[in-house]
Amino acid sequence: MNAKDILLQFKNGLFDRNPLLVQVLGVCASLAITTTVSNSLYMGLAVTAVLVCSNLLISLLRRFIPEQVRIAAYIVIISGFVTIVEMVMNAYMPSAAAKLGIFLPLIVVNCIILGRAEAFASKNTPLPSIIDGFAMGAGFTIALLLLGAIREILGSGSFFGIQLFGQSYTPIGILTSPPGAFMTLGCLIALIQYLKDRLQSKTKASADQTHKDVKNKEVEPNDL
């Protein structure tokens, strides 16, 4: 467990395997609550908190949970943490909890959390699992914030509830409704695929370049 591994995990969570924009997990809640940036932030933080805690516990218990009932066991653990998060939010930030509504308890069935439990925490030691939880949670939160920012700025003309434009601005209502959410998500996914392609071709080109250089060096002596 060195710094390079941690960096790679964060790069995976934020970009290469971003839960929302690349793996396209947890779409339902994401589309529903990203009408404003503040909603996105609360949702992202709640999911991250649950993800880190459940990853840790599942990783600790990975040798004790029988293979056959693992999904049920994971769900019980996850729902425990979701209940805690829900109670905390209800106690200390009731307005945010009210805004998230049903989607707060629904974090239990969010595929990202179960997906990370199954794919990562059940196979790794606690420390990498916690880091994975933070990385994936951060990736999800940033994706939600992007979605929320685009939808709130264009759809309601505000950012974090602060009106950005004057009276003359006509908000594009479709962006605050479900079709607008789908379109924005589609555009973001397309953008990230484009960036990935660019990056890949660049690394490939540089790899080819070095390959050529090596070849040239090999050829040179023969020519001489």
Binding site: T170, I172, G173, I174, L175, S177, P179, G180
Partner: peptide, 10 residues
């Protein structure tokens, strides 16, 4: 349809 959903008043 897009315009109608976006700017119903206009």
């Amino acid at each position: 349809a897009c315009l109608l959903l976006s700017f119903s008043s206009a």
